[in-house]
């Protein structure tokens, strides 16, 4: 009963999403709303401002370099978190967090 209801609900939501994608503008349209203000400036002035013919790298690393800095730091923090969770009760985890032998400061009291 609940499995059939879940299937029907998922199909209805998928059909609604597919119908809404027809309303979006075409992909390379120069008159759509996101392509009006900043994008023509980037396309016209990327080669002479940054000196690189690759507009993707020029946008990522020169015009929006600040965002790439925080994206890199998010990747580092997520890798660190996954590593610390996975090494919870192992020997390597105890060596990283200095538990066990070296955590004897509290036990000496």
């Amino acid at each position: 009963m609940s499995k059939g209801l879940a299937t029907i609900l998922m199909t209805v939501i998928t059909v609604i999403f597919c119908m809404c994608t027809v309303l979006l503008p075409p992909i390379g349209d120069p008159n759509s709303a996101p392509n009006q203000h900043v994008t023509p400036y980037y396309i016209e002035h990327a080669k002479e401002d940054t000196g690189s013919p690759n507009i993707v790298t020029a946008t990522l690393a020169d015009y929006r370099g600040f965002d790439t800095l925080w994206e890199t730091s998010v990747m580092f923090v997520s890798g660190l978190t996954a590593c610390l969770i996975l090494l919870n009760n192992t020997e390597v985890g105890d060596k990283i967090l200095n538990k066990g032998k070296k955590g004897g400061k509290k036990r000496e009291e």
Binding site: T50, S52, A61, D62, T72, M75, G79
Partner: peptide
């Protein structure tokens, strides 16, 4: 500008490579 972009990309490369290895 080319030198600045190269230094940034070296930092990103090292971070991504070490994250994959340690996971």
């Amino acid at each position: 500008h080319a030198l600045g972009i190269l230094m940034i990309e070296v930092g990103v490369t090292v971070c991504v490579m070490m994250t994959i290895i340690d996971i």
